[in-house]
Design a protein around this nucleic acid. Structure first.
Lengths: 110, 110
DNA sequence: TCATATTACTACGACAGACGAAGTACGATA
DNA sequence: TATCGTACTTCGTCTGTCGTAGTAATATGA
């Protein structure tokens, strides 16, 4: 399992990535993260929803209510152009980060 | 420049890596990080020294005073066997983390 | 029919780690 | 005499994560 301190800086990016694939809502995104990571990373609910707030405050996503006539009402999110630009930036940063951290990592493939 | 939230989970690992190369002290480690990362990552002093405290509390490093007869007295650190084991663990975790985050990253090499 | 599970959140409070600002202490150089 | 570089230390703030708990609706099974 991956410790949250490691992935911390990428929670927002992970959410934005999934929203690039179309509008979605909390519970679905949570399941998608679990699936795509093959259970190796599970984002906690509170972490997820606080990330939505932060992303919306920054203008990276927009929220709206679904028109479900059944079940509990969902809050849907869609990525904004600003969010897409931010996502792209983060992807570039990631390549740099990988490169830098790798310099401090040894390979133990013995 | 790399944002600190990203590298957060690896500050301890970075320090341990440098201590694997031999005993050292804060200021030197700070400079080594700067050099090895080619200025792409600069660990803040407060972050560095609080990491030392944490690492020592966890038994991953040991501290001792240098016997400088000039200049301000340095606190040296050396990595313990427990610290080496922890470092190794972190290296393995890093491979997993890279793999997971990569699944949420797009390549923009256009 | 009653309990439990699943979906879909919200609120609250605690905690850890990063970091800015400022200060201390020493030596070397200009 | 002043400033720069070395080598830290203290203090307080902020952000993000997360545990706990609660709400609200539908679906499933005994």
């Amino acid at each position: 399992m991956i410790s949250s301190d490691v992935i911390r800086g990428y929670n927002d990016t992970i959410i934005l990535y999934l929203l690039l694939g179309g509008e979605s809502y909390g519970y679905e995104i949570s399941k998608n993260i679990k699936e795509l990571s093959e259970e190796k990373y599970i984002m906690k609910e509170t972490t997820l929803y606080s990330a939505f707030d932060r992303l919306e405050k920054n203008g990276y996503i927009e929220s709206f209510y679904g028109d479900e006539t059944f079940g509990k009402r969902r809050t849907y999110y869609r990525i904004t152009p600003k969010g897409q630009a931010y996502y792209k930036e983060k992807c570039e940063e990631w390549e740099l980060t990988k490169d830098v951290i790798n310099r401090f990592i040894k390979e133990w493939n013995v």
